[in-house]
């Protein structure tokens, strides 16, 4: 099988620039990157179809080897349609993002940042357990004789449930 070097070189450039654009923060550039790598993939499919210039469909009396392979062309057609639909949808999303926030950028996840910044101290699990763990009504317990204990009025909040 002969290899079309021009096709391969174009494909390489498309992938390189596409991936570069994909790593940008601006959404429009990301979209352009997606278009480029999508079409790079289409070129690869085209290259698998063999050398160009062969009979596409049916030529009277042509030998079997003189036909080009129709399958990659069918695959490319499907892939182009899919890339087209996704591009349109992404454009709509980018436009919406612009309408809402006036920005054309990938935004950080706020919740992610919050979880990452929270301290390892968990009030539920890490606070020291108070010494007084009785479940009895504190009001029913006689106050200490020296009178320095909790006044009965405050203790009453933990009444029967």
């Amino acid at each position: 099988m002969t290899v079309n070097v021009t096709l391969l070189a174009v494909m390489g450039v498309m992938f390189a620039t596409g991936i570069y654009l994909l790593l940008e923060r601006s959404l429009t550039r990301v979209l352009l990157g997606i278009v480029l790598i999508g079409n790079g993939a289409n070129l690869l499919l085209l290259a698998t179809g063999g050398i160009p210039g062969l009979a596409p469909l049916y030529v009277e009396g042509a030998p079997a080897g003189a036909y080009s392979d129709p399958l990659p062309q069918a695959l490319i057609l499907t892939a182009i349609v899919i890339t087209f639909a996704v591009t349109a949808l992404l454009l709509a999303i980018i436009y919406r993002s612009w309408v809402i926030a006036r920005r054309d950028e990938v935004v950080d996840d706020v919740e992610d940042r919050r979880v990452a910044a929270q301290s390892s101290f968990d009030p539920e699990e890490d606070t020291e357990i108070p010494l007084e763990t009785t479940e009895f009504d504190p009001a029913a317990i006689p106050p200490p004789v020296d009178g320095a204990g909790t006044p009965a009025g405050e203790a009453g909040t933990g009444g029967p449930r």
Binding site: A41, L44, L45, T48, P72, L75
Partner: peptide, 8 residues
């Protein structure tokens, strides 16, 4: 898609 192309 690239993998499919290469496999083909």
């Amino acid at each position: 898609l690239l993998a499919i192309g290469m496999i083909y």
